[in-house]
Design a protein around this nucleic acid. Structure first.
Lengths: 374, 374
DNA sequence: CCTGCGATTGAATCATTAG
DNA sequence: CCTAATGATTCAATCGCAG
């Protein structure tokens, strides 16, 4: 057990608060006093395992994450790394504190299992849905359009954690904030660039994501620890929202850029801190969702407004006319001999002896989607 | 190594196809022949029993960082259960088969890590976003509005798995299907009721979810295994979509209800079932066959779309640019200074004063091949 | 000034067949 | 078994530049 005398070996809060500690994550965390931070946000290496180059259909090469810090020998090596930093982070976390970890399917299952093994108590898993994810260029899988966050308290009995339920609800059209969040990836002016104008950091997270996290699970004045500080998004958002931060980072180039970035941030006034909410675009509706929801049965015949053409709905959400099959748009275009067609307004179904646009059904689906916060 | 004589111990497919095997999951799976199913859908229980049933004797050390024996024991038991059924499932899965597992934050991280440890290769994690999730009544967390699915191939090198990319895209407004899906939870008439009018099964999955899964990753006639069959959603959807199923279930009440449910299902017509297939499924055509058939004469000059390059067709089916000669693909790549190029879409020939892709001629050849029953 | 078009880009475990 | 050849494949944004 640590003796009281040892505590004097730790620096005073004033020496590390709102600074970036340079060095290895575990070694740096071991220099902080135990139970000294309110919340942790961690964006650890994802352990991507790429096999060769990937090109877009236009033959350009994808600039993948192949940095040395993301290379691990094996699952066992990654697990050992994960265990070490989680333990070090747990020591400095206050007993009623919480931790957020973000990852992808490459690593998040291992991280989540390890968190449970170490005694963290999962409160939610949260999905960051990307409005603009990278496509799956080879068409071999679903488009990888989200990342996963795990939110956990330090202990199973950690009841006193911070969750600003009312603020979340108020900023979400007065309904409970759900576990699926929609944000764009970090691009444009927010994305830090190096001297060549290239992206400084391969995986810079959007400030909106960190802002949602801090508004949900911290109070003003709380201390936010980020053991993989990178380009400093956590520090920038913490300063803007009136929270304190402490970061750990190995690369001097990232530290320098993050310091400069955070220096330029102006904290919000207390009055401005209360409300923040975003707009929503009209959600896209997949034709197949009409079939999924039972609103349209496979085998239904669709017609154009003047009943010059007929097409049959198939179970996979495509339309068939004779031998040809394709999307509602593609088939609509082909029967008319056009390049393009809006299938939603072109095709109709029989109802009450008349014809009704299938777009009518899309409107009904959208009402349900909006309830789901799409 | 299994001897040939042992194989006769396994029942013929006709004895178990489209039936529900009663009994423990692992024991029942061990009675099926290896490599006999195309795809697995599993909705395992996540009864982690962490509500204080398991206590270690000495409470005083529970706070030690990595010493949570109460949790560890129940997690270890769950991991052993997960490992056992995943191994049994893996044995009966064909080498190019895939597996879907659904879960929540209580169990999905452990399941995902175990799948990786056993050699499954994750293709996607997919989020089922619920349009109508249960609220968080205590207001202490985010509304738990999604569940997570893991889609994995049996092996890392499992390249030949089924993914109906074109069908997914065509049914989704002609853009790639994403990893986040929106469906309502199973309610209303679809939800099976017991004699008292209460829900028969606590976690009955919506048919729309299973339909999306099967339309995406199976072909008609495939065998779908569900080791936790429950109320039989997998079987009902498989029958409706022209797939075969085999289920494993312990509770007789669920088996009876599932049998009755599946019996009432009417399969869709073939014409409603066929799925879109893209160019990948088309037969290969050798460029030289255009010359053989007289559609293209040796000496013809081919151009790219903007007439920046010209190449001459030679009698042996190669192209020549200056001193260099090679396939339509190789030469297309070389003139552009690229690694690869699809010569069929890159090269054009002059017709009626304009340029036409040579891919147009390939299409004509393919029609001829189909008539010839090739 | 605005508009439109082309180029660029983002945490990616991204092929199959013939020989 | 390996090697070489074939040929299939992208969505939402941002940015720069031409008109």
């Amino acid at each position: 057990m640590r003796q009281l005398a040892d505590l004097s070996a730790f620096p005073a809060e004033s020496e590390w608060l709102n600074t970036i500690l340079k060095g290895d994550c575990v070694a740096a965390l071991d220099k902080l006093p135990e139970k000294s931070v309110d919340i942790i946000f961690a964006d650890p290496p994802y352990n991507l395992q790429l096999d060769g180059d990937l090109h877009r259909p236009d033959q350009s090469k994808v600039d993948a994450v192949d940095d040395h810090w993301d290379q691990f020998e094996s699952f066992a090596a990654y697990d050992a790394f994960t265990r070490a930093w989680l333990l070090a982070a747990r020591r400095v976390l206050k007993p009623n504190g919480t931790i957020w970890v973000i990852g992808s399917y490459h690593n998040i299952f291992r991280v989540g299992a390890m968190m449970q093994d170490l005694g963290f108590w999962i409160l939610n898993d949260v999905v960051w849905r990307k409005t603009n994810p990278m496509p799956n260029f080879r068409g071999r899988r679903f488009q990888n359009a989200h990342e996963t966050l795990i939110w956990a308290s330090r202990d199973q009995k950690g009841k006193g954690y911070t969750f600003n339920y009312e603020a979340m609800k108020a900023s979400n059209d007065d309904v409970q904030m759900r576990s699926d969040w929609l944000f764009p990836i970090c691009t444009g002016g927010e994305r830090l660039k190096d001297a060549n104008g290239d992206k400084l950091h391969p995986t810079q997270k959007p400030e909106a994501l960190l802002a949602r996290i801090m508004m949900a699970s911290t109070k003003p004045g709380d201390v936010v620890l980020d053991p993989f500080f990178g380009s400093g998004t956590t520090g920038a958002v913490a300063k803007r929202l009136g929270r304190n931060f402490v970061g750990v980072e190995r690369e001097q180039a990232y530290i320098d850029a993050a310091r400069e970035r955070i220096e330029a941030v102006r904290p919000l006034e207390d009055s401005e801190l209360s409300t923040m909410s975003g707009k929503r675009a009209e959600p896209r509706v997949a034709f197949v969702s009409l079939i999924d929801s039972g609103m349209m049965k496979p085998g239904t015949i669709l017609y154009d407004a003047r009943k010059r053409w007929a097409a049959k709905v198939r179970a996979d959400g495509t339309l068939a006319v004779g031998e040809k099959a394709g999307s509602i748009h593609r088939i609509g275009a082909e029967v008319q001999g056009l390049d393009a067609c809006n299938g939603w307004t072109f095709w109709h179904y029989e109802r009450n002896g008349g014809l009704t646009q299938i777009d009518e059904l899309r409107r009904i689906v959208r009402v349900g989607m909006e309830r789901a916060g799409a």
